[in-house]
């Protein structure tokens, strides 16, 4: 109960998330640059994906992560190779943050053999066992019990691993999320539930979908601590992530982090965007952009000049251009692939 009331103090308006005044461990120059590059890679990758979608090179649904980069980059910095990551269909950023190759991700988007799923999964269904990325799940909320199962396995095997299980603000209304919360606390499973509150599930705002307004408190009835975090601030995310991951690793059970964030683009590529105002989007982009804001920190600290950052951007754009080229040059899967991978050969 102490935990629950503790988290009450963290209540904040969902409108304009601001970093909480806290004593920060100042990250080193190298760390800041790493966060910057990682976020920028996601941004540039997604812009390119959007463009390629517009050219008809990418089919189906394509959910871009632009605006939310700080969440996944900050979380990723708190974990190591014991840990597992799982999320929904808005997964490109998570995969890049997990260290998956931009080429393989982009080639999956174009449905080519060079993609992580050999072109059979597409944007919403990608995996990399090597990078401990467990998908990429297209059914809203389904990744939550599965991610809880990853934590169950970590505990069963005694690996000290933690499962980072991401879900949207819309997904929290799935019954299975609460079923998973219950089991996670009941069995003290090492899972951090990262709720990416980007204010909308498709066109429905949190206000119109959830009777509970403080999503970080959804684990409270089960005794799970929760915290609301400025998800536009990579440093705030990282700090919260370290605390939550440590809590899980110490065997204390699951933890909820609600990341206040924003997606700049539509829900998927075809989104009429009539549910929010242009001003709202502009305000977030102009005043809360995680990448612009971090660049200011870096320049202000004197670590890099604007020109240096331009050079970094150029390098990253080259990486993305390579990925795009690979994704177009890689052949479509051979017709023989139609019948492979249905079952694992015993």
């Amino acid at each position: 109960m102490a935990r629950a009331s503790q988290s009450k103090n963290r209540k904040r308006s969902s409108k304009a998330p601001r970093p909480r005044a806290r004593k920060r461990v100042t990250p080193s120059e190298d760390q800041l640059l790493e966060y910057y590059k990682d976020m920028l890679l996601i941004r540039r990758f997604e812009e390119r994906a959007g463009q390629m979608y517009g050219m008809g090179l990418i089919g189906g649904f394509c959910h871009l992560y632009i605006g939310q980069e700080a969440v996944v980059v900050g979380m990723q910095k708190a974990i190591d190779d014991r840990d597992a990551v799982i999320t929904s269909y808005r997964d490109h950023g998570h995969m890049l943050a997990c260290g998956m190759d931009a080429k393989g991700v982009m080639a999956e988007l174009t449905g080519r053999i060079g993609g992580y799923s050999k072109g059979k999964g597409g944007s919403m269904h990608m995996f990399s066992r090597d990078n401990r990325f467990y998908g990429g799940h297209g059914i809203v909320g389904a990744q939550v019990p599965i991610g809880t199962g990853l934590a169950f396995a970590a505990k069963y095997k005694g690996t000290d691993g933690v499962s980072l299980t991401y879900l949207g603000d819309g997904a929290v209304n799935q019954g299975q999320v609460h079923e998973a919360f219950n089991m996670a606390e009941l069995w003290s499973l090492p899972v951090v539930y990262v709720i990416e509150n980007n204010r909308y599930g498709m066109g429905t705002s949190v206000k119109r979908a959830s009777a509970a307004k403080e999503l970080y408190r959804l684990g409270e009835p089960y005794g799970m601590p929760g915290e609301q975090v400025d998800g536009m601030d990579v440093l705030a995310v990282r700090e919260a992530a370290e605390k939550a991951v440590k809590y899980c690793r110490d065997g204390k059970g699951p933890y909820v982090l609600e990341m206040m964030t924003y997606r700049y683009r539509g829900h998927s590529m075809s989104d009429p965007a009539r549910y929010r105002t242009k001003e709202e989007v502009a305000e977030m982009r102009e005043q809360h952009d995680p990448i612009t804001n971090l660049s200011k920190v870096i320049v202000h600290a004197g670590y890099k000049t604007e020109d240096d950052l331009k050079k970094i951007d150029k390098d990253i754009r080259a990486v993305v251009a390579d990925a795009a080229e690979f994704a177009q040059a890689s052949p479509e899967p051979d017709s023989s692939e139609l019948y492979t991978d249905v079952l694992v050969d015993a």
């Binding site: 597992a84 799982i86 467990y134 389904a142 939550v144 019990p145 599965i146 991610g147 809880t148 199962g149 990853l150 934590a151 169950f152 396995a153 970590a154 069963y156 095997k157 019954g175 299975q176 079923e179 998973a180 219950n182 089991m183």
Partner: peptide
């Protein structure tokens, strides 16, 4: 909690159990 524990079982299987 059939929906939940079935998903949990699938996750545990993905992780090698």
């Amino acid at each position: 909690t059939e929906h939940g524990f079935t998903g949990l079982g699938v996750g545990a299987a993905f992780a090698g159990l």
